[in-house]
């Protein structure tokens, strides 16, 4: 067991502005899975076993403990609680073998949960996604404050999770708080 302590991407305190709450979520371990040539069937089987279903284009499978979403053709991001799945990449690689390329992504992203009545208004001045038409499980890659982010519409109607580049966690958080203030 190593003795290094991880630091959160930002360590931001949860903030509520008006009806909107912005909370950093430090508990998500991530790995991407890309099917290899000839490995598509195995990949599908493993994803079904892990998630219950293979995420379709533009969709997330919100499953417990692992969840996953479509990133690109034959490519998915799989997430699970950090406490139990810090080695998610190794876990997936063990299952997938040569059927897929697995890449650890936990360190690449910062996750923010945005909830509240005016979340859709906030989204409208943050990024170009049709937030009011999105249903639970929809995911869009989009630009927020010039940063490439994934926006996942979670089960609750007023809840989105934003995955953004970790190195820009501070800038992204600032943009979220600014937008929340703007629509509050």
């Amino acid at each position: 067991m190593h003795d290094l302590t991880p630091t959160p991407a930002l360590g931001a305190a949860t903030q509520t502005i008006g009806t909107v709450t912005v909370a950093e979520n430090t508990g998500v371990a991530l790995a991407s899975v890309a099917a290899r040539t000839g490995g598509e069937n195995t990949c599908t089987k493993v994803l079904k076993a892990v998630l219950g279903a293979v995420p379709d284009v533009g969709r997330t499978v919100l499953h417990d403990p692992e969840a996953g979403f479509w990133m690109g053709p034959d490519q998915w991001m799989i997430g699970a609680p950090m406490d139990t799945h810090e080695d998610i990449a190794d876990q997936l690689k063990a299952k997938l073998g040569d059927a897929a390329s697995v890449t650890e992504q936990s360190g690449a992203w910062v996750a923010f949960d945005v909830t509240g009545e005016r979340m859709p208004d906030m989204c409208e001045i943050l990024c170009n996604i049709p937030i009011r038409k999105m249903v639970a499980g929809d995911v869009r890659r989009t630009m927020i404050h010039q940063l490439g982010c994934f926006v996942i519409r979670r089960a609750a109607y007023d809840h989105i999770r934003i995955l953004g580049p970790r190195a820009s966690a501070k800038s992204l958080h600032h943009a979220l708080i600014t937008a929340a203030t703007s629509v509050a």
Binding site: S101, T103, E104, G107, A108, W109
Partner: peptide
């Protein structure tokens, strides 16, 4: 197009 190769940017995943 049919090489078996997958690319993922991991710039920020590693310190």
């Amino acid at each position: 197009p049919d090489m078996d190769v997958q690319l993922i940017s991991t710039t920020e995943a590693w310190a």
